[in-house]
Design a protein around this nucleic acid. Structure first.
Lengths: 216, 216
DNA sequence: GCAGAAGTGGACGAGCTGCTCCGGTTCACC
DNA sequence: GGTGAACCGGAGCAGCTCGTCCACTTCTGC
Protein backbone atom coordinates (compact mmCIF):
# COMPACT_ATOMS: atom_id res chain seq x y z
CA UNK A 1 0.00 0.00 0.00
CA UNK A 2 2.28 2.73 -1.27
CA UNK A 3 0.23 5.82 -0.59
CA UNK A 4 1.16 8.49 -3.03
CA UNK A 5 -1.54 11.10 -3.34
CA UNK A 6 -2.33 12.27 -6.83
CA UNK A 7 -0.08 11.07 -9.65
CA UNK A 8 3.42 10.38 -8.47
CA UNK A 9 6.17 12.84 -9.39
CA UNK A 10 8.70 12.05 -12.06
CA UNK A 11 12.03 11.00 -10.63
CA UNK A 12 13.90 14.23 -11.41
CA UNK A 13 10.98 16.28 -10.19
CA UNK A 14 10.93 14.47 -6.89
CA UNK A 15 14.67 14.98 -6.52
CA UNK A 16 14.23 18.69 -7.08
CA UNK A 17 11.43 18.77 -4.56
CA UNK A 18 13.77 17.33 -1.99
CA UNK A 19 16.51 19.80 -2.82
CA UNK A 20 14.03 22.61 -2.38
CA UNK A 21 12.86 21.28 0.97
CA UNK A 22 16.39 20.80 2.22
CA UNK A 23 17.47 24.26 1.17
CA UNK A 24 14.31 25.85 2.55
CA UNK A 25 14.70 24.10 5.87
CA UNK A 26 18.19 25.50 6.23
CA UNK A 27 17.22 29.00 5.18
CA UNK A 28 14.16 29.19 7.41
CA UNK A 29 16.04 27.81 10.34
CA UNK A 30 18.85 30.32 10.00
CA UNK A 31 17.07 33.46 8.94
CA UNK A 32 13.41 33.07 9.80
CA UNK A 33 10.33 33.04 7.62
CA UNK A 34 11.20 36.15 5.65
CA UNK A 35 12.62 34.08 2.85
CA UNK A 36 11.36 34.47 -0.70
CA UNK A 37 10.78 31.82 -3.32
CA UNK A 38 13.70 33.36 -5.13
CA UNK A 39 15.98 32.84 -2.15
CA UNK A 40 14.94 29.25 -1.86
CA UNK A 41 15.45 28.68 -5.57
CA UNK A 42 18.94 30.10 -5.45
CA UNK A 43 19.89 28.09 -2.39
CA UNK A 44 18.48 24.92 -3.93
CA UNK A 45 20.18 25.66 -7.26
CA UNK A 46 16.90 25.38 -9.03
CA UNK A 47 14.86 27.79 -11.14
CA UNK A 48 12.31 30.02 -9.44
CA UNK A 49 9.64 28.49 -11.61
CA UNK A 50 10.33 25.09 -10.14
CA UNK A 51 9.82 26.32 -6.62
CA UNK A 52 6.59 28.10 -7.55
CA UNK A 53 5.32 25.04 -9.41
CA UNK A 54 5.85 22.76 -6.41
CA UNK A 55 4.88 25.23 -3.68
CA UNK A 56 2.66 27.94 -5.12
CA UNK A 57 2.15 29.74 -1.82
CA UNK A 58 4.66 30.07 0.92
CA UNK A 59 2.23 28.36 3.22
CA UNK A 60 2.60 25.15 1.24
CA UNK A 61 6.31 25.20 1.91
CA UNK A 62 5.84 25.94 5.60
CA UNK A 63 3.36 23.15 5.97
CA UNK A 64 5.68 20.63 4.39
CA UNK A 65 8.58 21.80 6.52
CA UNK A 66 7.09 22.27 9.94
CA UNK A 67 4.62 19.44 10.14
CA UNK A 68 6.84 17.05 12.05
CA UNK A 69 8.44 19.77 14.14
CA UNK A 70 5.04 20.84 15.38
CA UNK A 71 4.17 17.22 16.00
CA UNK A 72 7.31 17.00 18.08
CA UNK A 73 6.20 19.92 20.20
CA UNK A 74 2.90 18.19 20.80
CA UNK A 75 4.70 15.05 21.91
CA UNK A 76 6.84 17.17 24.19
CA UNK A 77 3.67 18.35 25.88
CA UNK A 78 2.30 14.87 26.16
CA UNK A 79 5.47 13.56 27.74
CA UNK A 80 5.45 16.46 30.16
CA UNK A 81 1.83 15.75 30.98
CA UNK A 82 2.74 12.27 32.12
CA UNK A 83 5.20 13.50 34.72
CA UNK A 84 4.47 12.89 38.35
CA UNK A 85 5.51 16.40 39.36
CA UNK A 86 3.22 18.81 37.51
CA UNK A 87 5.35 21.90 38.12
CA UNK A 88 8.36 20.13 36.76
CA UNK A 89 6.24 19.01 33.84
CA UNK A 90 5.19 22.54 32.98
CA UNK A 91 8.68 23.87 33.33
CA UNK A 92 10.33 21.15 31.32
CA UNK A 93 7.77 21.46 28.55
CA UNK A 94 8.21 25.19 28.18
CA UNK A 95 11.96 24.90 28.38
CA UNK A 96 12.14 22.18 25.75
CA UNK A 97 9.78 24.02 23.45
CA UNK A 98 11.75 27.22 23.76
CA UNK A 99 14.94 25.32 23.14
CA UNK A 100 13.50 24.17 19.84
CA UNK A 101 12.59 27.73 19.04
CA UNK A 102 16.05 28.87 19.95
CA UNK A 103 17.51 26.32 17.58
CA UNK A 104 15.22 27.09 14.68
CA UNK A 105 14.29 30.62 13.94
CA UNK A 106 11.74 29.58 11.36
CA UNK A 107 9.93 27.33 13.79
CA UNK A 108 10.03 30.09 16.34
CA UNK A 109 8.29 32.54 14.04
CA UNK A 110 5.93 29.89 12.82
CA UNK A 111 4.75 28.92 16.27
CA UNK A 112 4.44 32.43 17.57
CA UNK A 113 2.83 34.09 14.63
CA UNK A 114 1.73 31.59 12.13
CA UNK A 115 0.40 32.82 8.84
CA UNK A 116 -0.88 29.29 8.51
CA UNK A 117 -3.09 28.90 11.55
CA UNK A 118 -4.22 25.45 10.53
CA UNK A 119 -1.18 23.58 11.69
CA UNK A 120 -0.18 25.52 14.78
CA UNK A 121 -3.84 25.90 15.64
CA UNK A 122 -4.49 22.20 15.70
CA UNK A 123 -1.36 21.73 17.78
CA UNK A 124 -2.66 24.21 20.31
CA UNK A 125 -5.86 22.23 20.57
CA UNK A 126 -3.89 19.18 21.55
CA UNK A 127 -1.50 20.97 23.87
CA UNK A 128 -4.00 23.07 25.78
CA UNK A 129 -5.74 20.23 27.64
CA UNK A 130 -2.42 18.77 28.70
CA UNK A 131 -1.24 22.09 30.09
CA UNK A 132 -4.62 22.63 31.71
CA UNK A 133 -4.34 19.33 33.49
CA UNK A 134 -0.78 20.03 34.62
CA UNK A 135 -1.82 23.42 35.85
CA UNK A 136 -4.75 22.03 37.79
CA UNK A 137 -2.59 19.43 39.47
CA UNK A 138 0.09 21.99 40.23
CA UNK A 139 -2.45 24.27 41.85
CA UNK A 140 -3.77 21.45 44.00
CA UNK A 141 -0.28 20.78 45.24
CA UNK A 142 0.21 24.48 45.91
CA UNK A 143 3.02 24.65 43.37
CA UNK A 144 1.33 27.36 41.33
CA UNK A 145 -0.63 30.38 42.45
CA UNK A 146 -4.38 30.01 42.16
CA UNK A 147 -5.07 32.97 39.93
CA UNK A 148 -3.19 31.95 36.81
CA UNK A 149 -4.86 30.19 33.92
CA UNK A 150 -3.83 28.26 30.85
CA UNK A 151 -3.97 31.45 28.82
CA UNK A 152 -1.31 32.92 31.03
CA UNK A 153 0.95 29.97 30.45
CA UNK A 154 0.33 30.30 26.72
CA UNK A 155 1.84 33.77 26.85
CA UNK A 156 5.11 32.56 28.34
CA UNK A 157 6.61 31.67 24.95
CA UNK A 158 5.63 35.13 23.73
CA UNK A 159 7.39 36.76 26.64
CA UNK A 160 10.49 34.67 26.56
CA UNK A 161 10.44 34.55 22.78
CA UNK A 162 10.80 38.31 22.62
CA UNK A 163 14.01 38.05 24.58
CA UNK A 164 15.11 35.09 22.53
CA UNK A 165 14.79 37.12 19.35
CA UNK A 166 16.82 39.97 20.64
CA UNK A 167 19.55 38.07 22.43
CA UNK A 168 20.11 35.39 19.83
CA UNK A 169 23.36 36.84 18.61
CA UNK A 170 24.38 38.49 21.85
CA UNK A 171 23.77 36.03 24.66
CA UNK A 172 22.15 32.91 23.25
CA UNK A 173 21.31 31.48 26.66
CA UNK A 174 19.78 34.54 28.23
CA UNK A 175 16.30 33.18 27.55
CA UNK A 176 16.86 30.49 30.17
CA UNK A 177 17.42 33.10 32.83
CA UNK A 178 14.34 35.00 31.76
CA UNK A 179 12.26 31.85 31.68
CA UNK A 180 13.30 31.07 35.23
CA UNK A 181 12.40 34.57 36.31
CA UNK A 182 9.02 34.52 34.61
CA UNK A 183 8.19 31.09 35.93
CA UNK A 184 8.91 32.23 39.46
CA UNK A 185 6.11 34.72 38.93
CA UNK A 186 3.75 31.77 38.65
CA UNK A 187 4.74 30.48 42.04
CA UNK A 188 2.81 31.14 45.21
CA UNK A 189 2.56 33.09 47.35
CA UNK A 190 1.22 35.78 45.11
CA UNK A 191 1.46 39.37 46.20
CA UNK A 192 -2.21 40.18 46.02
CA UNK A 193 -3.93 38.80 42.96
CA UNK A 194 -3.34 39.53 39.32
CA UNK A 195 -5.23 42.41 37.79
CA UNK A 196 -7.57 41.83 34.88
CA UNK A 197 -8.66 38.58 33.31
CA UNK A 198 -6.74 35.92 31.46
CA UNK A 199 -7.34 35.93 27.71
CA UNK A 200 -10.20 33.77 26.51
CA UNK A 201 -9.55 31.17 23.81
CA UNK A 202 -10.76 33.38 20.97
CA UNK A 203 -8.53 36.22 22.04
CA UNK A 204 -5.61 33.89 22.42
CA UNK A 205 -6.12 32.63 18.91
CA UNK A 206 -6.07 36.15 17.61
CA UNK A 207 -2.88 36.84 19.46
CA UNK A 208 -1.16 34.02 17.66
CA UNK A 209 -2.85 34.40 14.33
CA UNK A 210 -3.27 37.99 13.41
CA UNK A 211 0.28 38.87 14.25
CA UNK A 212 2.06 40.08 11.15
CA UNK A 213 5.27 41.31 12.67
CA UNK A 214 6.46 44.85 12.42
CA UNK A 215 9.62 46.74 12.17
CA UNK A 216 10.59 47.68 15.68
CA UNK B 1 17.37 85.77 23.31
CA UNK B 2 15.41 84.10 20.53
CA UNK B 3 17.54 81.08 19.74
CA UNK B 4 16.87 79.95 16.23
CA UNK B 5 19.65 77.77 14.94
CA UNK B 6 20.68 78.38 11.35
CA UNK B 7 18.67 80.89 9.33
CA UNK B 8 15.05 80.99 10.36
CA UNK B 9 12.47 79.34 8.11
CA UNK B 10 10.13 81.39 5.97
CA UNK B 11 6.65 81.63 7.41
CA UNK B 12 4.97 79.23 4.95
CA UNK B 13 7.85 76.81 5.29
CA UNK B 14 7.57 76.79 9.05
CA UNK B 15 3.83 76.24 8.81
CA UNK B 16 4.40 73.26 6.55
CA UNK B 17 7.00 71.92 8.93
CA UNK B 18 4.43 71.96 11.68
CA UNK B 19 1.80 70.27 9.54
CA UNK B 20 4.31 67.56 8.75
CA UNK B 21 5.18 67.05 12.41
CA UNK B 22 1.54 66.93 13.44
CA UNK B 23 0.63 64.45 10.76
CA UNK B 24 3.70 62.34 11.44
CA UNK B 25 3.01 62.25 15.15
CA UNK B 26 -0.46 60.90 14.51
CA UNK B 27 0.69 58.35 11.97
CA UNK B 28 3.55 57.02 14.06
CA UNK B 29 1.40 56.87 17.13
CA UNK B 30 -1.30 54.87 15.38
CA UNK B 31 0.64 52.61 13.08
CA UNK B 32 4.21 52.45 14.33
CA UNK B 33 7.44 53.47 12.72
CA UNK B 34 6.82 51.74 9.41
CA UNK B 35 5.58 54.95 7.85
CA UNK B 36 7.13 56.31 4.69
CA UNK B 37 7.85 59.87 3.73
CA UNK B 38 5.11 59.49 1.16
CA UNK B 39 2.59 58.53 3.82
CA UNK B 40 3.54 61.52 5.91
CA UNK B 41 3.31 63.83 2.92
CA UNK B 42 -0.15 62.58 2.04
CA UNK B 43 -1.39 62.88 5.61
CA UNK B 44 0.06 66.37 5.93
CA UNK B 45 -1.35 67.38 2.54
CA UNK B 46 2.06 68.45 1.39
CA UNK B 47 4.33 67.33 -1.43
CA UNK B 48 6.76 64.53 -0.84
CA UNK B 49 9.56 66.84 -1.76
CA UNK B 50 8.70 69.10 1.11
CA UNK B 51 8.95 66.30 3.61
CA UNK B 52 12.28 65.14 2.22
CA UNK B 53 13.62 68.69 2.19
CA UNK B 54 12.82 69.21 5.84
CA UNK B 55 13.59 65.70 7.11
CA UNK B 56 15.98 63.99 4.72
CA UNK B 57 16.28 60.81 6.77
CA UNK B 58 13.54 59.23 8.79
CA UNK B 59 15.75 59.55 11.81
CA UNK B 60 15.47 63.34 11.61
CA UNK B 61 11.72 63.04 11.87
CA UNK B 62 11.90 60.58 14.75
CA UNK B 63 14.29 62.80 16.64
CA UNK B 64 12.04 65.83 16.29
CA UNK B 65 9.01 63.81 17.35
CA UNK B 66 10.23 61.71 20.22
CA UNK B 67 12.63 64.03 21.96
CA UNK B 68 10.19 65.26 24.58
CA UNK B 69 8.48 61.92 24.97
CA UNK B 70 11.78 60.29 25.81
CA UNK B 71 12.51 63.15 28.17
CA UNK B 72 9.20 62.41 29.81
CA UNK B 73 10.20 58.80 30.36
CA UNK B 74 13.39 59.95 32.01
CA UNK B 75 11.43 62.22 34.33
CA UNK B 76 9.14 59.30 35.11
CA UNK B 77 12.17 57.39 36.30
CA UNK B 78 13.44 60.29 38.34
CA UNK B 79 10.11 60.74 40.06
CA UNK B 80 9.98 57.03 40.78
CA UNK B 81 13.51 57.17 42.15
CA UNK B 82 12.41 59.70 44.75
CA UNK B 83 9.76 57.42 46.21
CA UNK B 84 10.14 56.19 49.73
CA UNK B 85 9.09 52.65 48.83
CA UNK B 86 11.59 51.38 46.26
CA UNK B 87 9.48 48.43 45.12
CA UNK B 88 6.57 50.71 44.53
CA UNK B 89 8.92 53.05 42.69
CA UNK B 90 10.12 50.33 40.36
CA UNK B 91 6.64 49.08 39.70
CA UNK B 92 5.13 52.48 39.10
CA UNK B 93 7.92 53.47 36.76
CA UNK B 94 7.60 50.39 34.62
CA UNK B 95 3.84 50.64 34.60
CA UNK B 96 3.83 54.28 33.59
CA UNK B 97 6.43 53.74 30.91
CA UNK B 98 4.51 50.82 29.48
CA UNK B 99 1.35 52.86 29.57
CA UNK B 100 3.05 55.42 27.37
CA UNK B 101 4.11 52.66 25.04
CA UNK B 102 0.60 51.30 24.98
CA UNK B 103 -0.72 54.71 24.01
CA UNK B 104 1.84 55.37 21.31
CA UNK B 105 2.91 52.62 19.04
CA UNK B 106 5.65 54.71 17.52
CA UNK B 107 7.19 55.48 20.87
CA UNK B 108 6.94 51.82 21.75
CA UNK B 109 8.92 50.76 18.72
CA UNK B 110 11.31 53.63 19.13
CA UNK B 111 12.17 52.78 22.71
CA UNK B 112 12.46 49.07 22.17
CA UNK B 113 14.35 49.02 18.95
CA UNK B 114 15.62 52.38 18.10
CA UNK B 115 17.29 52.82 14.77
CA UNK B 116 18.49 56.07 16.26
CA UNK B 117 20.43 54.91 19.30
CA UNK B 118 21.53 58.41 20.17
CA UNK B 119 18.36 59.53 21.84
CA UNK B 120 17.15 56.36 23.51
CA UNK B 121 20.73 55.55 24.39
CA UNK B 122 21.28 58.74 26.30
CA UNK B 123 17.96 58.22 28.05
CA UNK B 124 19.10 54.79 29.19
CA UNK B 125 22.23 56.33 30.64
CA UNK B 126 20.10 58.57 32.79
CA UNK B 127 17.55 55.94 33.75
CA UNK B 128 19.94 53.14 34.64
CA UNK B 129 21.44 54.68 37.77
CA UNK B 130 18.00 55.52 39.10
CA UNK B 131 16.78 51.98 38.61
CA UNK B 132 20.01 50.64 40.06
CA UNK B 133 19.49 52.69 43.18
CA UNK B 134 15.87 51.61 43.52
CA UNK B 135 16.86 48.03 43.06
CA UNK B 136 19.59 48.23 45.68
CA UNK B 137 17.23 49.76 48.20
CA UNK B 138 14.54 47.21 47.40
CA UNK B 139 16.98 44.38 47.96
CA UNK B 140 18.03 45.79 51.29
CA UNK B 141 14.42 45.85 52.38
CA UNK B 142 13.95 42.32 51.15
CA UNK B 143 11.41 43.45 48.59
CA UNK B 144 13.33 42.02 45.66
CA UNK B 145 15.25 38.78 45.36
CA UNK B 146 18.99 39.17 45.62
CA UNK B 147 19.96 37.62 42.32
CA UNK B 148 18.34 40.05 39.91
CA UNK B 149 20.23 42.95 38.39
CA UNK B 150 19.43 46.15 36.55
CA UNK B 151 19.82 44.35 33.24
CA UNK B 152 17.00 42.03 34.23
CA UNK B 153 14.74 44.96 34.94
CA UNK B 154 15.69 46.44 31.59
CA UNK B 155 14.27 43.39 29.91
CA UNK B 156 10.85 43.79 31.48
CA UNK B 157 9.64 46.23 28.82
CA UNK B 158 10.79 43.78 26.19
CA UNK B 159 8.83 40.98 27.79
CA UNK B 160 5.69 42.91 28.45
CA UNK B 161 6.08 44.84 25.22
CA UNK B 162 5.81 41.64 23.22
CA UNK B 163 2.44 40.99 24.80
CA UNK B 164 1.46 44.60 24.33
CA UNK B 165 2.11 44.34 20.61
CA UNK B 166 0.02 41.28 20.19
CA UNK B 167 -2.89 42.14 22.43
CA UNK B 168 -3.26 45.76 21.38
CA UNK B 169 -6.38 45.15 19.38
CA UNK B 170 -7.64 42.16 21.30
CA UNK B 171 -7.33 42.94 24.99
CA UNK B 172 -5.65 46.32 25.39
CA UNK B 173 -5.15 45.92 29.13
CA UNK B 174 -3.70 42.46 29.16
CA UNK B 175 -0.20 43.88 29.52
CA UNK B 176 -1.04 44.99 33.05
CA UNK B 177 -1.78 41.44 34.07
CA UNK B 178 1.41 40.23 32.49
CA UNK B 179 3.42 42.98 34.11
CA UNK B 180 2.04 41.97 37.50
CA UNK B 181 2.93 38.36 36.84
CA UNK B 182 6.44 39.16 35.68
CA UNK B 183 7.08 41.50 38.56
CA UNK B 184 6.08 38.82 41.01
CA UNK B 185 8.96 36.84 39.61
CA UNK B 186 11.28 39.51 40.97
CA UNK B 187 9.95 39.02 44.48
CA UNK B 188 11.60 36.87 47.12
CA UNK B 189 11.65 34.11 48.06
CA UNK B 190 13.29 32.83 44.91
CA UNK B 191 13.06 29.15 44.12
CA UNK B 192 16.75 28.49 43.92
CA UNK B 193 18.71 31.12 42.06
CA UNK B 194 18.45 32.24 38.48
CA UNK B 195 20.54 30.39 35.93
CA UNK B 196 23.10 32.27 33.86
CA UNK B 197 24.25 35.83 34.16
CA UNK B 198 22.45 39.08 33.63
CA UNK B 199 23.37 40.87 30.41
CA UNK B 200 26.26 43.27 30.66
CA UNK B 201 25.79 46.87 29.50
CA UNK B 202 27.30 46.28 26.07
CA UNK B 203 25.04 43.30 25.44
CA UNK B 204 22.06 45.23 26.62
CA UNK B 205 22.83 48.02 24.23
CA UNK B 206 22.98 45.57 21.39
CA UNK B 207 19.66 44.14 22.39
CA UNK B 208 18.04 47.52 22.02
CA UNK B 209 20.03 48.77 19.09
CA UNK B 210 20.62 46.08 16.58
CA UNK B 211 17.03 44.95 16.56
CA UNK B 212 15.53 45.41 13.14
CA UNK B 213 12.27 43.61 13.59
CA UNK B 214 11.17 40.69 11.57
CA UNK B 215 8.09 39.20 10.07
CA UNK B 216 6.87 36.61 12.50
C1' DG C 1 15.03 4.36 -29.68
C1' DC C 2 11.06 7.07 -30.25
C1' DA C 3 7.02 10.00 -29.05
C1' DG C 4 5.04 12.88 -26.14
C1' DA C 5 4.17 13.94 -21.46
C1' DA C 6 6.31 16.02 -17.65
C1' DG C 7 9.41 19.07 -16.02
C1' DT C 8 12.81 23.04 -16.20
C1' DG C 9 14.75 27.73 -15.70
C1' DG C 10 15.36 32.31 -15.98
C1' DA C 11 14.15 36.37 -18.89
C1' DC C 12 10.78 39.47 -18.36
C1' DG C 13 6.69 42.36 -17.25
C1' DA C 14 3.84 44.20 -13.72
C1' DG C 15 3.65 46.62 -9.58
C1' DC C 16 5.58 48.91 -5.74
C1' DT C 17 8.59 52.16 -3.00
C1' DG C 18 11.97 55.71 -2.24
C1' DC C 19 13.86 59.78 -3.73
C1' DT C 20 15.16 63.63 -7.03
C1' DC C 21 14.60 67.49 -9.69
C1' DC C 22 12.88 71.51 -11.74
C1' DG C 23 9.03 74.67 -13.61
C1' DG C 24 6.12 77.29 -11.21
C1' DT C 25 4.57 79.76 -6.98
C1' DT C 26 4.90 82.45 -2.71
C1' DC C 27 7.03 85.29 0.51
C1' DA C 28 10.10 89.01 2.46
C1' DC C 29 12.34 92.91 1.87
C1' DC C 30 13.02 97.31 -0.34
C1' DG D 1 4.37 96.71 -6.32
C1' DG D 2 8.57 94.76 -7.89
C1' DT D 3 12.45 91.57 -7.51
C1' DG D 4 14.92 87.69 -6.32
C1' DA D 5 15.51 84.23 -3.03
C1' DA D 6 13.15 80.64 -0.76
C1' DC D 7 10.02 77.24 -1.19
C1' DC D 8 6.54 74.02 -3.21
C1' DG D 9 4.58 69.91 -5.51
C1' DG D 10 4.31 65.85 -7.75
C1' DA D 11 5.67 63.74 -12.20
C1' DG D 12 8.80 60.54 -13.11
C1' DC D 13 12.96 57.74 -12.72
C1' DA D 14 15.71 54.10 -10.57
C1' DG D 15 15.79 49.93 -8.10
C1' DC D 16 13.61 46.23 -6.23
C1' DT D 17 10.57 42.00 -5.58
C1' DC D 18 7.21 38.88 -7.06
C1' DG D 19 5.30 35.53 -10.01
C1' DT D 20 4.37 34.03 -15.06
C1' DC D 21 5.28 31.95 -19.23
C1' DC D 22 7.16 29.38 -22.84
C1' DA D 23 11.12 27.58 -25.62
C1' DC D 24 13.86 24.03 -24.33
C1' DT D 25 15.34 19.62 -21.87
C1' DT D 26 14.60 15.23 -19.63
C1' DC D 27 12.25 11.31 -18.43
C1' DT D 28 9.06 7.25 -19.08
C1' DG D 29 6.33 3.84 -21.35
C1' DC D 30 5.96 1.30 -25.32
Amino acid sequence: MDDEGPTRLRRDAEANRQRILTAARRLFSETGLAVSHNDVARAAEVGVGTVYRRFPRKEDLLLALFEDQVEQVVRLAETAGARADPWRGLYVFLEAMLQMQADDRGLHEYLLGSQAPSLAGRATERISPVVAELLARAKELGQVRADVEVADVALVPVLVGAVLDRTRGVAPDQWRRVLALVMDGFRPPAEGSLPGQPLDPAQLEQVFTSWKGRSA
